[in-house]
């Protein structure tokens, strides 16, 4: 007779196959070490925009993660977006996607009216094993995105073995079934010749990571040519803001719900 604990372990191993622990490396060694190899592939991840004006940065960060997830796989990206976001922050521009190394031809874009529809479309897409990654952009308070909805998405991602990214602008971070939760802000880029703006850069703060360390801030740059993040946390301080400005407590308070929807900047 086998030991009950052993059989329990065995059944747990069946329920969570090895693939469940497969990770997506961000490409920056220091980050990946800290994250334990990267973010989980078959899981739900959230990126919150620090303020409403950081929405493009949050989406850009999630797109870069999706790009990492899809590397080497001939699978499409499914991008679900609430229509209100396009009047607020502009509509996705395919040449700009190509500029951060996402092939626009490999993207299917779904425009929906509200958060409820966005989550339905996202769950439908996330469940599909032929999708490389799913990106869902929600705008504002989005009450439809609750614990149950996030759990549903997490299960869909686990079943399909592909990540689902939720990007939220104008909302305060809330508990959910996400495997990781990030707070993203725009970061001044490394200037090019003649003080020209450089590659996309993000100040990211890991609010939560399931079974791992959280509460860590980095400054990263997206290197399109390598298709990887580059850690810039310890660059010359004159080029970027101090890390201390990314305090955990301060961040959600800054997102006043009534003003978040209207104001940029």
């Amino acid at each position: 007779m086998t030991h009950p604990l052993a059989s329990l372990r065995k059944s747990l191993a069946c329920a969570h196959p090895a693939a469940a622990s497969e990770t997506i490396a961000l490409g920056a060694p220091a980050l990946d070490r800290r994250l334990g190899g990267g973010i989980l592939r078959a899981a739900l991840h959230e990126a919150y925009a620090g303020t409403a004006a950081d929405a493009p940065a949050a989406t850009g960060f999630a797109l870069a993660l999706a790009r990492r997830a899809m590397a080497g796989k001939q699978k499409p990206l499914l991008w679900v977006r609430q229509e209100a976001l396009s009047t607020e922050a502009g509509a996705p521009y395919p040449p700009g996607l190509a500029d951060i190394d996402i092939d626009p031809a490999a993207v299917a874009f779904i425009r929906v009216r509200d958060a409820k529809e966005a989550l339905q479309a996202g769950a439908e897409a996330g469940r599909c094993a032929t999708v490389g990654a799913t990106l869902i952009e929600l705008f504002g308070a989005a009450r439809a995105y609750d614990l149950t909805a996030s759990r549903r998405l997490a299960l869909a991602a686990a079943a399909a073995g592909a990540p689902i990214f939720i990007v939220r602008a104008g909302a305060a971070p809330a508990p959910s079934a996400a495997a990781s939760r990030w707070l993203v802000r725009a970061l001044p880029s490394r200037p090019r010749a003649a003080n020209a703006p450089g590659s996309a850069a993000f100040a990211i703060f890991l609010l939560r990571q399931r079974g791992g360390a959280a509460g860590h801030a980095w400054r990263v740059e997206w290197n399109r040519d390598r298709g990887a993040f580059k850690d810039r946390t310890f660059d010359a301080p004159s080029l970027s803001r101090p890390v201390a400005s990314l305090s955990v407590g301060g961040a959600p308070d800054e997102v006043a719900p009534q003003t978040a929807g209207r104001k940029f900047g």
């Binding site: 502009g90 700009g96 190509a98 500029d99 031809a105």
Partner: peptide
């Protein structure tokens, strides 16, 4: 179902993104 992948211009290596991710219309 899909557009030919080659139809999008490849960005120049080493250059920062020259086109925005979101466009206002």
């Amino acid at each position: 179902p899909s557009s030919p992948p080659s139809s999008w211009p490849k960005p120049e290596p080493g250059e920062p993104p020259l086109r925005p991710l979101f466009l206002f219309d």
